[in-house]
Amino acid sequence: MDPESRKNTKLHMPNDSYFFEKIIPGLLVALGIVTLALILFALGVLFGLVHF
C-alpha cells in the first residue's frame, strides 16, 4: 500500500465496511437506549419512585 492510501484509510472509514455500516450504528443506538434507561432509573431514585 502506498503512503497516501495508508493515510486515507486512517483518516477515512473504509468503503463498504459491514462493521462501520451496520455494527457501529447498531451499537450507538443500543448504547443510547441503555443510557436513557439508566438516566430514567436515576431520576426515579431522585424523585423517590424507585426505592433501594
Binding site: 483518516l11 477515512h12 472509514m13 462501520f20 457501529i24 450504528p25 451499537l27 450507538l28 448504547l31 443510557t35
Partner: peptide, 25 residues
Amino acid sequence: IYSAFLFWRKRVMPNRVIGNVLIAA
C-alpha cells in the same frame, strides 16, 4: 456517543468512532 456519531456521519477518523464507542460502553 455524540462524538462517535459526528465522526461516523462525516466518515472520518474511524479510530475516534471506535474509541468513543468503547468509552461509552
